[in-house]
């Protein structure tokens, strides 16, 4: 078997939000606008994957190559093309993308960004607020950050968060924190009656919770790979 001798090749799916840039005629004016934007918001295109949507601009291979070159000169690297034909592309141009999901319009920042812009610095911290009870059979899933629930989580309901979970009510259902692999995530609740607590893959069922902690306000965190629970009052 030859395959045993060779290390296997690893594939992984990856999804990300790309910035779709739509050039319009006349191109020199459009590029001037782009320069103005880049000057107002330095770093706007930094570390962002950019897709060029050519559907609003009649073009051929040469003009497309020139435009990609113009963008490259401005520090914008195009990772893929939309609204054009495979046939006119050569190996020196980015590939045509398919299977992407369109998302909403991106707000272009109008204020000059203060200080040094870095890739992550401009992103808002993500959190989800749920201000009603989570009922049996419902599942709140928020892989991007913390979940705060103002109300109770019923038996048979589950809350899954990439970050920490805060329940201002009774936690009766399942709480899964740090779902994307965050051992620093915690679970807080005002009254612990949970069926299951899980942080970064480690879990504790109701049976394994000390009886004197039940019904109390508690926090749970990961201590050397095991879930620790302590009263908050």
């Amino acid at each position: 078997m030859t395959s045993a001798a060779r290390p296997s090749i690893r594939f992984r799916g990856h999804s990300l939000i790309a910035l779709v840039v739509v050039p319009e005629e006349p191109v020199p004016d459009w590029l001037a606008h782009l320069d103005a934007l880049a000057q107002r918001s330095p770093g706007f295109f930094a570390s962002r994957p950019v897709i060029l949507d050519m559907s609003h601009l009649p073009h051929d291979k040469d003009s497309l190559r020139a435009l990609v070159g113009d963008l490259f000169a401005r520090g914008i690297r195009v990772m893929g093309l939309e609204g054009t034909e495979e046939a006119i592309l050569g190996p020196d141009l980015p590939p045509v993308l398919s299977g992407g999901n369109p998302t909403g319009q991106l707000d272009i920042p109008t204020d000059r960004i203060k200080g040094q812009a870095n890739g992550n610095g401009t992103r808002r911290p993500a959190s989800l607020l749920v201000d009603k009870p989570v009922r049996s059979g419902q599942s709140i899933c928020f892989p991007d950050g913390d979940v705060t629930i103002v109300g109770s989580v019923s038996s048979g309901a589950e809350v899954i968060a990439g970050g920490s979970i805060h329940v201002y009510g009774t936690l009766r259902g399942r709480a899964v924190a740090g779902s994307g692999g965050d051992p620093k995530a915690r679970i807080y609740c005002r009254k612990l009656e949970a069926e299951l607590l899980m942080i970064d893959g480690s879990f504790r069922t109701d049976d394994e919770v000390q009886p004197d902690l039940r019904g109390r306000p508690v926090q749970a965190w990961l201590d050397n790979g095991a879930i620790a629970i302590a009263s908050l009052d």
Partner: peptide, 16 residues
Amino acid sequence: EVSSVRDSDRIIGLLD
């Protein structure tokens, strides 16, 4: 009783 309450909770979620 508990099973009836949990089922009702599920139904309330569906009503909403």
